[in-house]
Design a protein around this nucleic acid. Structure first.
Length: 949
RNA sequence: GGUCGCUUAGCUCAGCUGGUAGAGCACCGCCCUUACAAGGCGGGGGUCACAAGUUCAAGUCUUGUAGCGACCACCA
């Protein structure tokens, strides 16, 4: 029924179309099923799917499919993000390349038009890529953060927070990106270690040299205060020099004035304990408008804030004339030059290690800049005395939300405990424009639109209103994502049914950006948590553990793994973003080494299985194509197992008069055995999902299918069905259970590998009269209704050991596979009776021509033995065995065994062990000793036997 | 500087509340046996980084040491 060769890509396409065309994954909002909901972290709308997405979405889809299959109404809310800065930069670059124009040249409206065009051009790409993974979402519910409905929600949220007093506008020092000319949040600034210069500059006392002390307490005469700085150009904005009040060297100088070099100003010496006595000279210049620490100090001591920079970081009119309009870095050179010329420069350390704050997006050094911005307050309390952040902390300490793994809570807590007000305004054009309007006097009105504001504030038509030009930080709209997508501000069925959502799967890199903000925003606006659990995934690295990055050329596109790619294509694709020739060659070399033949077609299922298997809790994962190949083999195995089942059940017709819940026809021992394996596995399967142990889940399903189902159960069934004289009843039940267990296995496997299982199941459903439209909507099997005989299952295990023993001997003695052997089993009558039922099986699976039973090995000659508990499996050797060699071998085993026996005996004669260890442990050890003794007895018997030969 | 994590077979990693060291890949034999060579059968391989402690018992718990990594904060 199934072809030997299968085209995985064709199968995938078929089922993607089937699911879509038949609306398989549509959400039924009116259903009475228990809801299950998760939010897809919306990727950048113009982005491309990368390994991280594929990894996380695989896990999400496994959860979604699982919950759908256990009978829940699932909503996987998908969407894309407008990604303010990133997208705007792309489009700006594009118009620069095309027409050498800036956004200011073409104006806001024209520019936004371009961005929307850009968005339309690329939006479908990432959506299609996500679909390609088998993402079983209701795509009709796709949302985009700039959709009209989202904009409405954003406005509502902003207005609400403003009216509640959580949002305010203020002139504050913020991180400023001078190339983008916008504020960025603390999180968008990354510190980079650099070696720079630290200049020591003398600020002479206005009243001439003063007495002071050196660090040993000796009197010295100082011409002035010497400050140390890495940014000499900012001295032009200095407002004071500050020392520590406990610094004996300078304490008495507080209140004096110094002349600020190069500027025609004097500034005071002040004291504050934020100054570190040990660091540098112990004197700090206070540049309130251009440094965060200094800002706090200046505000506290009422020192004037002097802004000397324009928004693109050139010197403005507040700086001395000779520096006007100079770029900040050129200005630095000039300032140093002039200080030197005028003998104000006392020293310079040119090898100073420091952390330089750079804008994450542009890499430009961030300039602290005094500007008018909107903030969300972290200090405002509600009626219960909670702030946004304290409430967000409480949700976790009260266990209303949990992290998995739990230790991320530390990171989360630490950040929220030190959080500053969140600057939410950006001087960009692409984003949600802030719903605030100003009249001619600068009075601010926050509201939905101009009309409603006029109405609300009773403004006459001749008062002009102008909307704030800034847009909101992208993460503002992301922060309300869990409920904005479900219909907020309206009270929709979706909100009622699916919010709070169940779990969020995301990377640790956006715990602050997104997770914490969602918790805060949802808490204050909806008075709810956004989700119950947060599963944090590790990073997907390359097989050597390096971070995947375009500039390293080690990025693997998940779609290339799915579809395959030739070596040369892979190389040119991977190195296209590397501009240096030598690096390009290095990367190409790495690729040739790692993928000598490019990447073969692996299919989505293998990729999904790989991610599932690699999904440990907490660590980063290394992506190795060999692993994917391994799981591609696994899907092939499943395919062939199904082919086997179908080829042996071609004449099977389901008899509706039979109660095939398994009770009224007799199951073969191996049927019981495999059903038992499936039952036990299913129990753990549910547990693994609950605990997010995707790795365990995949490992065990692999083992169940390959080691148990294929290697033993199918082989055993083959022996039964090959028998031409098999009675109808037995044939029927064997065939039925083959199909039944295949059905179970496909369902259990389906959440991980949806495509191959759908394809096989489509051929299976007719045979078992199953009426589900496809496997995706079939339930996870409930198999525990079948009563199983424990003793029979044990007998199967014994049989497996016997077969294994014989095979082991065959392997040791390199007996050709097509040569049958004679076997003598030494055991008691009870065991003999049990084993006799399995004779055909043993003969077939271990290639045995005859089996004899004996109660002692007295009469045996020229055999090789394997001892299993109380039975000895002898294989008769036609060639004379090497007696000496065998004795050496068996002695080795006896010694090893004796060693274990001694350890156990010691343990069991230790009173403390007997009295303190748990009863079941003691019993277990006793049983084990009994077993070892039996084996030892058998080994010794065989040894003396050999010696007599 | 603060926080968190990691160190187990050649490689990548499991090992839950302490109770005889596991898997996949790689490796070595023998097989193209009528589901599958993308396969079958068999096999070898680890003082669980180091040290001390708790315990009848430590890969597992505690403390310390070394190495690696991540994040946060940074000092003019």
């Amino acid at each position: 029924m199934l072809d030997k060769q299968f085209d995985i890509l064709q199968i995938e396409e078929k089922w993607l179309n089937f699911w879509q065309d038949n609306d398989i994954f549509l959400v039924d909002i009116e259903s009475s099923k228990t809801p299950f909901c998760l939010m897809l972290p919306p990727p950048n709308v113009t982005g491309r799917l990368h390994m991280g997405h594929a990894f996380q979405q695989t896990l999400m889809d496994i959860l979604i499919r699982y919950h759908r299959m256990i009978g829940k109404e699932v909503l996987w809310q998908v969407g894309t993000d407008h990604a303010g800065i990133a997208t705007q930069m792309l489009v700006e670059r594009q118009i620069k390349n095309e027409n050498n124009l800036s956004r200011f040249d073409i104006g806001r409206d024209k520019f936004l038009e371009k961005v929307w065009q850009w968005k339309e051009l690329y939006a479908q790409r990432i959506v299609n890529q996500m679909k390609r993974l088998g993402t079983s979402a209701d795509w009709s519910r796709l949302r985009f953060t700039m959709d009209t409905s989202m904009s409405k929600a954003v406005k509502e949220a902003f207005i609400y927070l403003y009216k509640q007093g959580y949002i305010y506008k203020g002139n504050r020092l913020v991180n400023w990106d001078p190339s983008l000319m916008t504020a960025v949040s603390d999180l968008e600034v990354v510190a980079e270690e650099v070696r720079g210069s630290m200049w020591h500059i003398l600020y002479p006392f206005t009243d001439g040299p003063q007495e002071a002390f050196d660090s040993e307490g000796n009197k010295v005469t100082l011409k002035g205060m010497t400050i140390a700085t890495t940014r000499p150009e900012t001295m032009l904005a200095d407002g004071a020099v500050c020392v520590n009040p406990n610094d004996k060297r300078y304490k008495h100088l507080v209140g004096k004035y110094v002349d600020l070099p190069l500027c025609n100003r004097t500034i005071p010496v002040i004291e504050d304990d934020f100054v570190d006595i040990e660091f540098g000279t112990g004197c700090v210049k206070i540049t309130g408008a251009h440094d965060f620490n200094d800002y706090a100090c200046a505000i506290k001591h009422n020192i004037p804030l002097i802004n000397i920079f324009t928004l693109d970081a050139k010197l403005n009119e507040n700086a001395p004339k000779q520096f006007f309009n100079m770029d900040r870095f050129n200005c630095r050179k000039e300032v140093v030059k002039e200080l030197k010329q005028n003998n104000f420069l006392v020293g310079v350390d040119e090898n100073h290690k420091m952390m330089q704050p750079k804008s994450e997006r542009t890499g430009v050094i961030v300039e602290p800049m005094l500007t008018n911005q909107w903030f969300i307050s972290m200090k405002k309390h509600n009626e219960k005395g909670e702030t946004l952040s304290s409430r967000a902390l409480n949700y976790f300490s009260d266990r209303e939300i949990n992290f998995i793994p739990a230790n991320w809570l530390n990171t989360y807590n630490q950040w929220l405990n030190n959080i500053q007000d969140w600057c939410i305004s950006r001087q960009l054009w692409w984003g949600h424009q802030i719903p605030a309007w100003y009249d001619d006097n600068g009075k601010v009105y926050v509201g939905y639109d101009e009309d409603s504001i006029r109405k609300e504030y009773n403004l006459s038509a001749n008062i002009k209103l102008k909307q704030d030009e800034d847009v909101l930080d992208t993460w503002f709209s992301s922060g309300i994502w869990t409920f904005s997508t479900l219909g907020y501000p309206d009270n929709t069925r979706e909100l009622e049914k699916f919010h709070p959502t169940d779990v969020l799967i995301t990377g640790f890199d956006i715990i602050f950006f997104w997770v914490a903000r969602m918790v805060m925003m949802t808490g204050v606006i909806k008075n709810q948590v956004p989700f119950r659990e947060v599963y944090i995934t590790g990073l997907v690295r390359d097989s050597d553990g390096n971070k995947m990055s375009k500039t390293k050329g080690n990025v693997i596109d998940p779609l290339d793994v799915i579809q395959g790619i030739g070596l040369e294509d892979l190389i040119s694709k991977s190195t296209e973003s590397i501009y240096q020739k030598d690096r390009q060659e290095k990367a190409a070399k790495g690729i040739r080494k790692m993928f000598p033949e490019g990447i073969q077609t692996c299919g989505v299922d293998s990729l999904r299985f790989t991610f599932c298997a690699l999904a440990n809790t907490g660590r980063d994962i290394r992506f190795d194509i060999k692993r994917v190949m391994g799981y591609r083999n696994f899907t092939n195995k499943v395919w062939n197992a199904a082919r086997f089942v179908f080829s042996y059940t071609e004449d099977f017709k389901l008899d509706n008069n039979i109660d095939y819940n398994g009770v009224n026809f007799k199951l073969r021992p191996f049927d019981q055995w495999i059903i038992n394996k499936i039952v036990k596995f299913t129990e753990r399967y549910h547990k693994y999902i609950k605990e997010y142990r995707f790795d365990m889940m995949s490992q065990e399903v692999y083992e169940l299918i390959w080691d148990h189902y294929c290697d033993w159960y199918l082989e055993a069934s083959k022996v039964t069905l090959k028998d031409q004289n098999i009675p109808f009843e037995r044939k029927y039940s064997t065939q039925y259970i083959l199909l039944y267990t295949l059905d179970c296995i496909l369902r259990l496997l389906h959440p991980i590998t949806p495509f191959i299982t759908e394809e096989i199941w489509a051929s299976l459903k007719g045979k078992l009269n199953l009426n589900y439209r496809c496997l995706s909507v079939a339930p996870i099997p409930e198999v525990n209704s079948i009563t199983l005989d424990k003793e029979i299952i044990e007998n199967v295990e014994t049989t497996i050991s016997v077969i294994h023993s014989i095979r082991q001997i065959r392997g040791d003695y390199v007996i050709s596979p097509n040569k049958k052997v004679d076997v003598i089993i030494v055991c008691n009558d009870e065991l003999k009776t049990k084993l006799e039922d399995f004779e055909d099986l043993i003969k077939d699976l271990a290639k045995v021509s005859s089996i004899k039973y004996m109660t002692s090995n007295d009469k045996l000659k020229n055999t090789i033995v394997n001892v299993i508990n109380n039975l000895q499996v002898h294989v008769y050797m036609h060639d004379l065995i090497d007696k000496e060699q065998e004795i050496i071998k068996i002695n080795k085993e006896i010694d090893k065994n004796q060693n274990n026996i001694n350890i156990l005996k010691n343990k069991l004669s230790n009173n403390e062990f007997i009295s303190k260890a748990k009863l079941e442990i003691v019993q277990k050890e006793k049983d084990r000793l009994k077993r070892l003794d039996l084996i030892q007895k058998g080994l010794i018997e065989q040894k003396s036997k050999l010696e007599q030969m």
